[in-house]
Design a protein around this nucleic acid. Structure first.
Lengths: 110, 110
DNA sequence: TCCTTTGTTCGATTATAATCGAACTATGAG
DNA sequence: CTCATAGTTCGATTATAATCGAACAAAGGA
């Protein structure tokens, strides 16, 4: 029972601009590992999950990418066998002006 | 044993500017109730804990004020029987320029 | 001195989140 | 088709955090 639940991987659920919440974004970025991911994305541009050199299990990394995606911070685009991640800069800037820049600046150099 | 542990209430531990962390601040502000507290402080200026009309138990409210204080977001000053809370605006602006303003703006009108 | 007000601390409970390994899925290469 | 790659999902475990009531503490008023 319940293989294949409805909100499954097939459709990679990204929130719309409007349904992003400030609390959700702040929470997503309050984790040092997730913050390091978005710093890297901001500095190097889009990258697949494997390119971050995260020192946690694959399943843990997958969890963190999901938190970022579901908060609206990143976009994940399937490309061949991998998922390309990118910052949702315009959406974030439009919904929460100045927030991403302030956080990136506060997070220091990569 | 262990009444009166050392980091006790007597000295209301506020982190120095330098020992504030971005993750800590983001985490503290990622909770809707705590966000509402700092919105109110930003809008009305300093206020005692009781003035926020929080709909949680006293002990829970006390917990949230502590999280904000220990992250460096607010200052708590004993004054008679109450504690006056204020935003640590200058410290935040100096350590994380633009962050507080971006968050307050994003959090909408009070 | 006793009482009220304001908030803290303690201990327990419940709820969320992080983490991992194992099994799985999808894609593309050989 | 078979295999390797890249990542997801599941289930379990552990760690953090939120919440409450009860007991406590400090300050000040009656």
């Amino acid at each position: 029972m319940s293989l294949c639940n409805n909100a499954n991987m097939r459709t990679l659920n990204h929130p719309s601009r409007k349904s992003m919440t400030l609390s959700g974004v702040l929470y997503a970025l309050s984790d040092p590992l997730r913050l390091s991911i978005i710093k890297s994305l901001a500095a190097q541009g889009e990258q697949p999950c494997g390119a971050f050199g995260l020192s946690v299990a694959k399943s843990t990394a997958s969890h963190h990418f999901r938190v970022l995606r579901e908060a609206g911070v990143i976009r994940m685009k399937p490309e061949g066998t991998q998922h390309i991640n990118s910052l949702r800069r315009e959406d974030l800037d439009s919904r929460f002006p100045g927030l991403l820049d302030a956080i990136l600046q506060a997070s220091g150099p990569v």
